[in-house]
Amino acid sequence: MPRLSAGARHRVRFALNGRAVEAEVEPRTTLLDTLRGPLAATGTHAGCEHGVCGACTIQVDGSMARACLMLAVQVEGASIRTVEGLAPAPDRLSVLQEAFREHHGLQCGFCTPGILMTLDAYLRDHPSPDERELREVLSGHLCRCTGYAPILRAALAAAERLREDVSHA
C-alpha cells in the first residue's frame, strides 16, 4: 500500500495534453499548483482555490474537474487536458476558441480557460445543447467581465459549427 509521507516530495506521473510528464510534489500540493508551477502550464488559473469560480477547470480522463479541488498525487496515471491542449496547432484556434474570439466571449480572459475546458467536454457529449442547458453548465463558472451573454452566443455558435463539421466529415 503506497503511503506518501507528509513533508517529503514524491514523484507523480501522468499525461498532460497527450505527453507524459512527471513532477515532484508533496501529498498536499494541489493539482492546480502542480500544473502552474513545476509543469509551467500557466493557462489554468487560480481564481478562488475553493472550487466555486471555475477558473481552474480542466479535464481529467475526459471529465471536467476543478484543479484546485484535486491533489497532484490523485492523478497518478491519469490523462489531463488543459487549455494548452485545445488548439490544433500553435497558430490556429479550435472551433470553440475561434467562436469565442468572433463573439467577444472573453474580455480579461482569466476565467476563459476554465470555461473552454467545460464547453469542450460538454459539447462532446451534448452536441446540440439549447441555451438553457448551456446556461446551466456554465453556471459552474464565474465571469466578471462579459455578463455571460457573449459566452452563450459563442458556445451556441461553436456547437453549430461543430455539428456542421461532423456532418461534412
Partner: peptide
C-alpha cells in the same frame, strides 16, 4: 467596426501573461 481582438489568440490558448504567470 467590431474587429476580432488582437488580445484573444493568446488568452484563448493559455498564453495569457498575468502576474502569476
Amino acid at each position: 467596426r467590431s474587429l476580432p481582438r488582437v488580445e484573444d489568440a493568446a488568452l484563448l490558448t493559455g498564453r495569457g501573461r498575468y502576474i502569476d504567470d
